[in-house]
Simulated scan of single mutants.
Amino acid sequence: MAELAIARRREVTRTDDRAVGLWLLGVSAMIFAMAVIGAITRLTESGLSIMEWAPVSGVLPPTSEAEWQRLFALYKTTPEYEKVNFGMSLSNFRGIFWWEWIHRFWGRLIGVVFLAGFLWFLLRGRLRRGLAPHLAALFALGGLQGAVGWFMVASGFADRVDVSQYRLMLHLGLALAIYAYALWIAIGLLAPTPAGGADARALRRGLWAFAGLVAATILAGALVAGLNAGLAYNTFPLMEGRFVPAGYGIRSPWIANLFENPTAVQFNHRLLAELTVLAALGLWLWSRRAAIAPAARRAFDLLALGALGQLGLGIATLLLIVPVWLGALHQAGAVVVLSLTVWALTRLGLSRDKAKP
């Protein structure tokens, strides 16, 4: 009887882990969608259309003509309207307003889904020991992300015609850190790491370095978006016939070029993307020769394919001069590469003898 009771408790634990994992996977999917919505919001230059921070009342969109006129009047006070969209009609304003409203609404919805699920599993005692602090940290990071979002938007209300590229980079970086954190936990609950092979430890270190390269490439892409640097040079593989464009270091101090010079920012993103693909292929070749679990080897196959596909999307986006749909797809591709990196890390378990201290 005692053995049966223990077996039942273990079965309940596996069932609970699966339920929590599926919920977190759903939250991760919502964050993925949020990243794409955010890309569309930026590409359509819709982010400054709502000048009020109203976490509760802002859930509802305008319901009267008077409210639309009031919000439009607020937007007319921004430098973006005065210098870029002067004379915009109310109808066109509604077009950019809806993207920003959807972006904010989806963020609120993620928070509600996460908090409701967290409390439900917590109060019913269905969270394994040690998981609650991680989920609490995720919720706190989500709240911080909302504040960072407003911090970013507010940068476009005074002297700029768009938001600060630094704050945009921070906003995107935090969003994807939350995404990777949630995805990591979800995978751990749904598909525990298999025992690895003798070469897993060294390959894991290489994969962590690759994850840093992926992060740097994505953050460089945020600078490209913030400065509209994707419109500067629309040729590939060279930039106006040169590998390093002529205007790379025109700003002073020189380090400002890395963050504020559209020419340098686009070049850096290109270079990082190419290095990411080469690194992915290098890891794939390494995995072919390494003594690792078959699941890990398949993960490296997918990672190499994902990196190549993302490079293709990036080149197409550049050559077609950044159409909204393709720019959003390129953002989605970046999140896919990040997801595959997380998946590969979770598949790269250590062998039992190597795992011992």
Rank of each mutant, 00 (worst) to 15 (best):
residue 116 A to W: 04
residue 64 S to G: 06
residue 218 I to R: 03
residue 282 G to E: 02
residue 232 A to W: 06
residue 226 G to T: 02
residue 119 L to W: 02
residue 254 W to S: 07
residue 314 G to Q: 09
residue 216 A to K: 11
residue 313 L to E: 01
residue 306 G to C: 12
residue 66 A to Q: 15
residue 35 A to D: 08
residue 347 R to T: 08
residue 98 W to R: 06
residue 30 M to P: 00
residue 292 I to E: 04
residue 108 R to F: 04
residue 238 L to C: 03
residue 108 R to E: 06
residue 244 V to I: 13
residue 304 A to G: 13
residue 291 A to Q: 13
residue 318 L to V: 12
residue 135 L to R: 03
residue 251 R to Y: 15
residue 268 N to D: 11
residue 258 L to H: 05
residue 236 F to M: 09
residue 228 N to P: 04
residue 319 L to T: 01
residue 279 A to V: 08
residue 309 G to P: 07
residue 292 I to A: 03
residue 44 T to N: 09
residue 147 A to W: 14
residue 246 A to T: 12
residue 221 G to R: 11
residue 92 N to Y: 11
residue 27 V to R: 06
residue 126 R to F: 10
residue 196 G to Y: 01
residue 179 Y to Q: 03
residue 201 R to L: 13
residue 10 R to C: 14
residue 280 A to T: 03
residue 78 T to K: 15
residue 30 M to F: 01
residue 305 L to T: 05
residue 260 E to H: 08
residue 79 P to Y: 06
residue 235 T to Y: 10
residue 135 L to Q: 01
residue 305 L to P: 09
residue 295 A to S: 15
residue 167 R to H: 09
residue 257 N to E: 08
residue 289 R to G: 02
residue 169 M to Q: 10
residue 217 T to K: 06
residue 64 S to D: 11
residue 353 D to H: 12
residue 257 N to F: 03
residue 317 T to L: 08
residue 284 W to I: 10
residue 249 G to I: 04
residue 170 L to V: 15
residue 8 R to H: 13
residue 209 A to L: 15
residue 245 P to Q: 06
residue 193 T to W: 12
residue 280 A to Q: 06
residue 47 G to E: 08
residue 103 H to A: 06
residue 115 L to A: 14
residue 208 W to V: 13
residue 117 G to D: 00
residue 247 G to A: 14
residue 183 L to C: 01
residue 3 E to R: 07
residue 230 G to N: 03
residue 154 A to F: 09
residue 40 I to G: 07
residue 252 S to F: 13
residue 287 S to P: 02
residue 173 G to E: 13
residue 124 R to H: 12
residue 309 G to Y: 04
residue 271 L to H: 02
residue 356 K to A: 15
residue 150 W to E: 03
residue 325 W to C: 06
residue 133 P to A: 00
residue 265 V to Y: 11
residue 267 F to A: 06
residue 215 A to F: 15
residue 323 P to W: 06
residue 322 V to I: 13
residue 14 R to S: 09
residue 279 A to T: 09
residue 320 L to E: 07
residue 73 A to H: 04
residue 306 G to T: 05
residue 138 L to G: 14
residue 288 R to M: 06
residue 329 L to Y: 01
residue 263 T to W: 12
residue 183 L to D: 01
residue 157 F to Y: 09
residue 192 P to A: 04
residue 160 R to M: 14
residue 300 F to D: 00
residue 297 R to I: 00
residue 263 T to S: 12
residue 171 H to W: 07
residue 162 D to Y: 14
residue 132 A to M: 03
residue 334 A to N: 12
residue 331 Q to Y: 07
residue 83 K to Y: 15
residue 191 A to Y: 07
residue 49 S to A: 11
residue 160 R to A: 12
residue 268 N to Q: 10
residue 22 L to A: 01
residue 102 I to P: 09
residue 32 F to Q: 05
residue 250 I to M: 15
residue 321 I to A: 12
residue 71 L to Q: 15
residue 89 S to E: 05
residue 189 L to S: 00
residue 132 A to S: 08
residue 262 P to M: 12
residue 190 L to T: 00
residue 18 R to C: 02
residue 268 N to L: 11
residue 115 L to N: 02
residue 26 G to I: 10
residue 210 F to G: 05
residue 51 M to T: 13
residue 73 A to N: 08
residue 43 L to H: 00
residue 343 W to V: 05
residue 6 I to T: 15
residue 293 A to F: 02
residue 287 S to N: 00
residue 85 N to F: 03
residue 178 I to A: 10
residue 276 T to S: 15
residue 83 K to R: 13
residue 304 A to N: 08
residue 219 L to K: 10
residue 142 G to P: 01
residue 202 A to W: 09
residue 327 G to K: 03
residue 151 F to M: 12
residue 269 H to Y: 02
